[in-house]
Design a binder for these strands. Structure first.
Length: 429
RNA sequence: GGAGGGAUGGCUGAGUGGUCUAAAGCAACGGUCUUGAAAACCGUCGUACCGCAAGGUACCGUGAGUUCGAAUCUCACUCCCUCCGCCA
């Protein structure tokens, strides 16, 4: 939710954000009108209450009766205004940062840097679905019989490879040394404080997901009506509210968490898209970072999260490009979104594998997660979330980039220690 | 799933219809004293909204209700604890 004071003072900026994020049709004038009405009613209620307190002190029962009715009416009007105000306010997306390109859709995204050399092959590289089937490490046919489309069995060495990625993430992000190395290598000035590993719930109240501004579109969520709960679409969804309704001390920040969980997406509206292989699944595993910081550090914190992503990618040697997402393609609560796209030689293209969302105080305002300054001042904390590794998509990158002519897959050196020194994935027995 | 108990300020905890603008203790912060510290003593010690300020209003898990008046009574919900059952 955006800040009402900001809206009052900068209606043009908000209007532009709504348009640039393709969310036209929100009546800002009505919002201001409701906010003004609410303010007046709040004053009225205060005044009635003051009289009521006086009447009580004087034991004036008659006046009390009258005031009771007046109060009830004023409160009803206040609540009606409040309800409509919030319902409109939560439709306003977060304001894009100044460096976010304005664009209608993904065509407006900007590649800001590339890393790594695309591998050259003396043969025609295969797509992961063919290699995976041939090696016996991806079984989508059986998964389709058991669970339906967009599910898969990852087997044997591929499952071990995923485990290795998880180990790499955990060992890197929870290590003070590794974090200091990243801060230094990328020329950052943020704290090298390591991440805390968390195993969060993967189901949550729909109401709390709504406070994260992530419930919509509801069609994208697996919803359990009997319990009014949803499956998470990312660990971000339960990591973000980990401090809701709390006041964090200034000196405790930044607070950084990393979690490895399954993520669930209905992929409604993606029918027919990426139906082959494991790129777009209803269920996939992901290591996710979430961070809470002081407002003035929020932007630098995003730079750190992106640096972590790049550091991990460079460790496993996958060529990638960093993309600054434009207004029309970025997430609703995002102030600044950066994606990493990994080179997929079997498909001869870059595909999105990572995302990094700087949401400022947008989520914290509804989550009621606040920061208390040493001076005593209280304000919403700033939040960042970012992918560490989306397992399925990273495995695609590894399979396709490290494939050999004989159909085997070389295991990158950084992952071998987590696979008992194994150097290759061969046809599984 | 069954039975019972509970939710009060950063923490512990008193308060069962009207000076509750919530006792007390702990913690924290400021001060006095001290070479310094501890102890002792004095003071401060929640959040939100309105207001230039003085000040006002709301908030005792959440929501509704009873009453002139609710932390206190009623109902629903949420969460926590104990026991029983089931169970990785």
């Amino acid at each position: 939710m955006i800040d009402l004071t900001f809206l009052r003072e900068n209606p043009d900026i908000v209007r532009a954000a709504i348009t640039n994020k393709n969310r036209d049709g929100i009546d800002l004038d009505r919002i201001i009108e409701l906010a003004d009405g609410r303010k007046k009613l709040s004053g009225d209620i205060s005044e009635i209450n003051r009289k009521r307190n006086a009447a009580q002190e004087a034991r004036d029962f008659e006046a009390g009766k009258t005031l009771k009715d007046e109060l009830k009416e004023a409160e009803e009007r206040y609540q009606a205004a409040e309800k409509e105000l919030v319902s409109l306010l939560i439709k306003i997306p977060n304001i894009p940062s100044a460096d976010t390109p304005v664009g209608p859709d993904e065509s407006g995204n900007k590649v800001i840097r590339q890393w790594g050399d695309k591998p050259t092959f003396s043969f025609t590289p295969k797509a992961h679905w063919d290699l995976g089937r041939e090696l016996g490490i991806i079984d989508s046919e059986k998964a389709a019989e058991v669970s339906g489309a967009r599910f898969t069995y990852l087997k044997g060495d591929l499952a071990l490879l995923q485990n290795a990625l998880v180990q790499l993430v955990i060992n890197t992000l929870t290590s003070e040394n590794e974090m200091a190395k990243i801060v230094q290598a990328f020329g950052l000035t943020v704290s090298p404080k390591p991440f805390t590993l968390v195993n969060p719930p993967i189901m949550m109240r729909s109401q709390v997901m709504n406070r994260m501004a992530r419930l919509d579109p509801i069609d994208e969520r697996y919803y359990f009506e009997k319990d009014d709960m949803v499956f998470i679409g990312s660990a971000e969804h339960t990591l973000g509210p980990i401090h809701m309704d709390e006041v964090l001390a200034e000196e405790s920040l930044p607070i950084r968490y990393v979690a490895y969980t399954p993520a669930f997406r209905r992929e409604a509206g993606a029918a027919g898209k990426d139906t082959r292989g494991i790129l777009r699944q209803h269920q996939f595993d992901k290591a996710e970072m979430e961070s809470f910081s002081k407002p003035e550090d929020g932007r630098a914190e995003q730079d750190l999260l992106v640096a972590v992503q790049e550091y991990l990618m460079q460790k496993i040697g996958l060529p990638y490009q960093v993309v600054l997402i434009c207004t029309g393609d970025m997430g609703f609560p995002d102030q600044r979104q950066i994606d990493i796209e990994t080179w997929m030689p079997g498909q001869d293209t870059y595909r999105e594998t990572h995302s990094s969302d700087y949401v400022g105080g947008f989520q914290a305002r509804r989550l009621n997660t606040r920061l208390k300054r040493a001076s005593g001042e209280i304000e919403p904390v700033h939040m960042n979330d970012a992918t560490a590794f989306a397992m399925g998509r990273t495995l695609i990158g590894l399979i396709e980039n490290y494939q050999n002519e004989d159909g085997t897959i070389t295991i990158p050196e950084a992952l071998r220690p987590y696979m008992a020194g194994k150097t290759k994935i061969e046809k599984q027995a």
